[in-house]
């Protein structure tokens, strides 16, 4: 449930006491009509608070903590687990890491062995080579689903469903669509017993830095992965990407056929 308008007004007065609503909207890059509508309905979106916080150099997570629903975001947060960190690395960055790790082996005359050959050699830690490109920032195209998969012990979805009253199939649909309401993200973190900001990063509401994640934490978690773990993870990601693309292509063909016959 979004934030109550009254509490929002109080918060806004605290953060920008002498600024007109029009100026707040302009600085935060929000449409005035959007904010007006949210105020009239008495429900202000979390994203609105985040945008305004950024415009006034306040930490969005601390700002959210001002509101009753997000009270627990106040104070120091549990840092993300390494699984969570890795889940927020884009699939293409994981594949790039696979290639980067197998490249030295390929150069040393074992071209045909490729990744499979490297997976056999024990190489627990890889310091990031200097030339390696930086990871693209979270979130990525499947970050919500990957995040939930990373913290799921097998019963997580049921617990979230029980705690929030969201039907499991609706929850799954949200994950597939790479969407999740901030409140549900918090409930998911709570049900999994991990830091509360993980879901907010995965849904793209706040950045890693705003959530207090260490810079380079994702890269460090990636470097900690063994070759086998990385390869299996990249394989899983690639497989689900393939499924998604297959479905998209089928839908596209179907739509073309409908248009061809009925358009």
């Amino acid at each position: 449930m979004p934030l109550p308008a009254k509490a929002f007004q109080r918060w806004l007065h605290g953060i920008a006491p002498d600024t007109s609503t029009a100026d707040v909207c302009r600085l935060a890059g929000i449409k005035r009509t959007t904010l007006a509508q949210q105020l009239v309905r008495g429900k202000v979106a979390e994203a609105t608070v985040v945008s305004i916080s950024r415009a006034f150099n306040a930490n969005p997570v601390s700002s959210l903590a001002y509101f009753e629903t997000y009270r627990d975001l106040a104070g120091p947060q549990v840092p993300p687990t390494s699984h969570e960190l890795v889940s927020q690395i884009a699939t293409m960055d994981l594949l790039r890491a696979v290639i980067a790790r197998s490249a030295p082996a390929a150069e040393s005359g074992a071209e045909s062995r490729g990744v499979a050959g490297v997976a056999g050699t024990p190489a627990p830690e890889h310091p990031a080579p200097g030339g390696q490109p930086a990871l693209s920032p979270a979130p990525h195209a499947t970050s919500v689903k990957n995040w939930v998969d990373a913290i799921d012990d097998g019963e997580l979805r049921h617990r979230v469903s029980a705690a929030t009253g969201i039907a499991p199939q609706n929850y799954s649909a949200q994950l597939t669509a790479n969407r999740m309401a901030p409140e549900v993200a918090i409930a998911t973190s709570r049900a999994a017993g991990v830091g509360l900001t993980g879901g907010l990063v995965a849904t793209g509401l706040v950045t890693e830095a705003e959530a207090g994640w260490e810079p380079g934490a994702r890269q460090a978690a990636l470097d900690m992965l063994s070759d086998a773990d990385l390869t299996v993870l990249a394989g899983d990601r690639l497989q689900s990407l393939g499924k998604t693309l297959r479905r998209q292509e089928q839908d596209h063909q179907q739509a073309e056929k409908i248009w061809e016959n009925l358009g």
Binding site: Q254, K257, I258, W259, E260, N261, L262
Partner: peptide, 8 residues
């Protein structure tokens, strides 16, 4: 016929 064709 058109609809059946279109929707496969």
């Amino acid at each position: 016929i058109r609809i059946a064709n279109g929707f496969g």
